[in-house]
Amino acid sequence: MIKVAIAGARGKMGQEAVHTVIKNDKMMLVAALDYKNANTTLADTGLFPTDYTVPVYTDLAELNEATAPDVLIDLTSPEVVYTHTKQALTLGIRPVVGTTGFTDEQLAELTTLAQQQKRGCIIAPNFAVGAILMMKFAKEAARFFPDVEIIEMHHDQKLDAPSGTGLKTAQMIQEVRTAKEQGHPNEKETYAGARGANFDGMHIHSVRLPGLVAHQQVLFGGDGQLLTIRHDSFNRGSFMSGVAYCVEEVMTQQTLIYGLENLI
């Protein structure tokens, strides 16, 4: 039985993760990490059934001492996720992280720490299996279509732009694509930002609107043709099979893995 703690349990993704872990017969939810609601239970928050008596802590070290989780699922925010992940590894807890916003320097530091601790750590910009396949297909297509733009679309409460999935897609394409600037060499933005973020000559466009969940399309242009690879998550349940998979898989790892595509 894998003992699991969840950071960000009151969020929409966190609530889904709570139900997923509790219903999984290979896992046991032992605690929640929150920035408030110390000395209460998940049931006390009013967001869960009355029998969800899992304790809530505001301090990860205290949580670890009291409940000794094997895995910390972090679904919080970019402002705190690095601190949580680093502290979890230091305490010997294996992080499974769905929050994005890490810098390259932070990822490098966490990779070194995971190797020193011989503890697995999985950071997944997207837990949806379909989204992972979209990224893999996009990388393959980029071998033949070097002119590409990414349009990622999310709900209007998302804090980071571009999304972790959009950035990860661009990084995967970069591995097989010869760097070049796309568009007319004398192209000029009449309004700054009109062409989106420039990543290695590719452009990433971020859309934020109410009603959206998580959507992305990768457009490849060629002579007389357009190839579009698209994935849509219509609800947060689409991410939960990936979360459960990562909780089991992180127990077998001894280093940091960035991106679920490295496991599928």
Rank of each mutant, 00 (worst) to 15 (best):
K3Q: 04
K3N: 04
V4D: 01
A5Q: 01
I6E: 02
I6S: 06
G8T: 04
R10K: 13
M13I: 12
G14S: 07
G14L: 08
G14P: 05
E16Y: 11
T20C: 10
T20F: 07
I22D: 05
I22K: 09
I22P: 03
N24H: 11
K26D: 13
M27E: 05
M28K: 15
A31W: 06
A31Q: 04
A31M: 06
Y35D: 09
A38M: 12
A38S: 14
A38R: 14
T40I: 11
G46R: 06
Y52R: 02
T53H: 06
V54S: 04
T58L: 10
N64Q: 09
A66R: 08
T67K: 05
P69F: 01
D70S: 00
V71I: 01
V71D: 00
S77W: 11
S77F: 10
S77P: 00
V81Y: 01
T83C: 10
T85C: 12
P95Q: 02
E105L: 12
Q106M: 08
L110F: 13
T111Q: 15
T111H: 12
A114F: 09
Q117T: 12
Q117D: 13
C121Y: 10
P125K: 10
F127H: 06
A138H: 08
E140H: 15
E140D: 14
R143D: 07
F144V: 13
P146R: 06
D147R: 11
I150P: 00
I151N: 12
E152R: 03
M153S: 15
D156G: 05
Q157E: 11
A161C: 10
P162L: 12
S163W: 01
T165P: 04
G166M: 06
K168D: 12
T169L: 12
I173S: 04
R177T: 07
E181R: 15
H184E: 13
E187M: 14
Y191C: 11
R195I: 13
N198G: 12
F199C: 10
D200T: 14
D200Q: 15
G201N: 06
G201H: 05
M202W: 10
M202E: 07
I204G: 05
H205E: 08
H205D: 07
L209D: 10
Q216Y: 02
Q217N: 06
F220E: 00
G222K: 01
G222T: 00
L226R: 07
L227E: 00
G237V: 01
F239A: 09
F239C: 02
M240V: 02
M240I: 04
A244K: 05
Y245F: 09
C246I: 03
E248F: 02
M251D: 02
Q253W: 05
Q254G: 11
Q254M: 14
L256Q: 02
I264C: 12
